[in-house]
């Protein structure tokens, strides 16, 4: 599907950037005139993926988080969140709801939230190299609703 627009940004993995990252992605996607629910879903999914980079990928260090958003034909949004951190040994296990290595205050639901709020979530990871989370969502077309 043809790309109509795209946006890239690189931020350091500081927790104070979590809010900025999701708001920036939401602002870019807003050109598609999404519903409030759709924009909240995307913000939440981005927040989870960025938090994973901060809490897991760059656990004891500050690294770069690469965020790419692509807007395709037919209201399709692709958000890619990539890090060059520690990587995930067992992606399948990491994606299981309630599995977490981050201790009692983390619910272990990050991937579950991403999967529930986006249409599709793909995770590729290599230990020692990093992780890429690619999420897609097709937004409703408001003119169809009329």
């Amino acid at each position: 599907m043809k790309e109509l627009n795209n946006f890239k940004m690189v931020i350091p993995s500081k927790s104070s950037n979590e809010s900025f990252a999701r708001v920036a992605v939401a602002a870019f996607v807003s050109q598609l005139d999404p519903t409030i629910e759709e924009i909240t879903d995307i913000k939440t999914a981005v927040s989870e993926a960025v938090t994973n980079c901060i809490v897991h990928a760059y656990k004891d260090t500050i690294g770069k988080i690469y965020i790419t958003v692509s807007i395709r034909e037919e209201n399709k949004v692709i958000v890619k969140i990539k890090d060059k951190g520690c990587g995930i040994e067992d992606v399948k296990k990491a994606m299981e709801p309630l599995f977490t290595t981050a201790g009692e205050e983390r619910a272990g639901l990050g991937f579950a939230v991403m999967q529930s709020f986006m249409d599709n979530v793909r995770v590729t990871s290599k230990v020692g190299k990093g992780t890429t989370v690619t999420m897609t969502k097709t937004l409703s077309r408001r003119e169809d609703e009329k």
Binding site: S19, S47, E48, E104, E105, A107, V113
Partner: peptide, 12 residues
């Protein structure tokens, strides 16, 4: 706004 960190907060 709330993400799954809110779940962690409630469960804790």
């Amino acid at each position: 706004f709330m993400d799954s960190s809110g779940i962690g907060l409630v469960m804790g």
